[in-house]
């Protein structure tokens, strides 16, 4: 099965979000090209998830406009699919039944099960279609959530810290899987994370959010082709710059060398 999607561009213009008098996000301008992978990086509670939810229409901006594929987002956008930090699977459905939630509504009933199983195979869960969520590990549940999102054939795949709750090894596998799926499907990806290395490994551009209320502090292009190894020397400087921006400065290897002498 081909998993190609028609990637959509995203455009944010002067986007802000306030909860009552409390302004969380202000004046965010950002253009994301179709097929691009952008990481939104920021400290906990800075509003990066809120920004992602506004692209998906789960939350609405209090000022400015959010556009997906040239159309204003005014509610749940059918061109977007979200993977949350938790798998959020329906416990009373099988894994295949959960993936079916992402399939288009107009897909005939007799093809839904077969398609769900194919999407599960895409996330290396062939053979687990009839398992229940409680019977599988956290990593497998999160892969099912990814399959559910892919089944929507999204123009924009919204990932809200999807690896944060996984153990280190599973997280690396998931990152590889997302990288692979993105390359084959060509979909636009917005990834919310607080992990600098994850951002440098997966993203074409990293958007650092900061300030109070939160705005875009800096946008950095990540050099080199994906898949990347975040230990590449040209990424080291970028890494320290981002960590400094997050308020945890680290010396670069070069500085460390100089210091040792």
């Amino acid at each position: 099965m081909t998993i190609t999607t028609a990637p959509a561009g995203v455009s944010l213009r002067g986007v802000g979000r306030a909860f009552g008098d409390h302004v969380v996000l202000r004046d965010i301008d950002l253009d994301i090209a179709p097929g691009e992978v952008v990481a939104l990086l920021g400290a906990s509670g800075c509003g990066k998830s809120t920004l992602l939810r506004m692209v998906g229409g789960l939350d609405l901006a209090t000022s400015g406009t959010v556009r997906v594929d040239g159309h204003d987002v005014t509610g749940i956008d059918p061109r977007c699919a979200v993977v949350f930090q938790e798998p959020r699977l329906l416990p009373w459905r099988t894994l295949a039944g959960n993936v079916a939630l992402g399939l288009p509504r107009d897909l005939p009933r007799n093809r839904r099960d077969a398609e769900s199983r194919q999407w599960l195979a895409e996330v290396e869960l062939r053979g687990f279609a009839d398992h229940r969520p409680r019977q599988v590990s956290g990593g497998m549940a999160q892969r099912t959530a990814l399959a559910r999102a892919l089944a929507r054939r999204p123009g924009v795949l919204l990932l809200d810290e999807p690896f944060a709750a996984l153990d280190a090894l599973t997280r690396l596998r998931m990152q590889d899987l997302v990288e692979d799926v993105q390359r084959r499907s060509g979909t636009t990806v917005i990834l919310v994370t607080h992990d600098v290395d994850e951002a440098l490994k997966l993203a074409d551009r990293v958007v650092l959010l900061g300030g109070a209320p939160t705005g875009v502090s800096v946008v950095l292009d990540v050099p080199g082709d994906r898949p990347r190894d975040h230990h590449q020397p040209e990424l080291a400087e970028l890494r320290s710059e981002l960590l400094a921006g997050l308020g945890v400065p680290r010396r670069t290897p070069l500085e460390r060398e100089t210091h040792a002498r």
Binding site: G56, L58, F84, R88, L90, W92, R152
Partner: peptide, 26 residues
Amino acid sequence: HLVEVGRAYGLRGGGLLGRIMLPSVA
């Protein structure tokens, strides 16, 4: 969380009630 998943995947009104909310409180 489950209700939000239902909304994010295009369910509203009766569909959200029948497929997500009632099963979750069965």
